[in-house]
Design a protein around this nucleic acid. Structure first.
Length: 266
DNA sequence: ATGGTTGTTTAACAA
């Protein structure tokens, strides 16, 4: 089974990209973030034509928005309202899985970006990000209490590892790579004994990125990337990871998203 | 230190 996560940055203008990605990577489940699309305008029929019969989406006008597209039937859709803000930043589903003993849950997150100033006293957006992460840790703790298998994916908007950014030194005070964010995200992974899939396969020594800013003339040449997108597996899946891939080619598509898809095979 | 770009919705905001 292949599970893919991608911050698509508008689902409506990047349907052609989605089609190419499906053709190239053949995922069974796709988790999208930043669909930027209210539910009434979600392009359900176009997506079903790509082979995804089972689709759930949680959107709002202009901002945020998450969706799960699946070839496999699921149930128990949850749209958790983190921080009581009624924004569309989470959706999860549960499915039966032929080769796993128990149910498999897929949790799709879009963590707040946090604004520019990494000071929660001054910047409400940064405070929101930290509050969201705290609630997310408790949510994950509760989810993994049972015997189900869990995969947590999404745009976490944090690059926790030194090699998750092009320059640790230059970004250590930049939102997404500050010590408080890095520690908080590492605690979520550590407290819940999750496997950070991308680092599991890449090791600690290599630079790993999933996002390159639009504000560079040549993203590939400057290569000032960050790893903001993540896939975490619950401990009971540890014998099931098969492979992973960062689909960097997508950053060279015409009018691309600033994030590229990341895929896990279990 | 500054500005660089994109998407949504229509001048501003978020990333």
């Amino acid at each position: 089974m292949k599970i893919l996560t991608w911050n698509i940055n508008s689902v409506r203008i990047r349907l052609a990209h989605l089609k190419t990605i499906v053709k190239e990577l053949d995922p069974d489940i796709i988790c999208l973030q930043e669909t930027k699309c209210e539910d009434a305008k979600f392009p359900l029929k176009d997506i079903q034509k790509l082979g995804f019969k089972f689709v759930v989406f949680h959107g709002q006008p202009s901002y945020n928005g998450v969706a799960i597209l699946s070839r496999i039937q699921f149930k128990n859709v949850v749209k958790h309202d983190f921080c009581n803000k009624s924004d569309a930043r989470h959706i999860s589903v549960e499915m039966s899985c032929r080769d796993l003993d128990n149910k498999l849950c897929i949790h799709n997150f879009y963590v707040p970006a946090g604004g520019d100033d990494p000071d929660p006293e001054v910047n409400q957006k940064f405070k929101h990000k930290l509050d969201f992460l705290e609630e997310m840790n408790l949510y994950i703790r509760d989810q993994i209490l049972d015997k189900r298998y869990h995969v947590f994916v999404g745009d976490m908007n944090i690059a926790p590892h030194i090699n998750d950014v092009w320059s640790h030194k230059q970004l250590v005070n930049v939102v997404s790579h500050t010590n408080i964010e890095r520690h908080t995200l590492n605690n979520i992974i550590g407290d819940n004994k999750l496997c950070d899939i991308m680092r599991y396969f890449a090791g600690d020594d290599d630079k790993v990125y999933s996002w390159w800013s639009y504000r560079n003339r040549d993203w590939k040449k400057s290569n000032r990337g960050r790893r903001l997108d993540h896939i975490w597996c619950s401990q009971n899946l540890k014998n099931n990871y098969k492979n992973h891939q960062i689909f960097t080619e997508a950053r060279d598509f015409e009018r691309p998203s600033d994030h590229v898809p990341v895929i896990l095979e279990i």
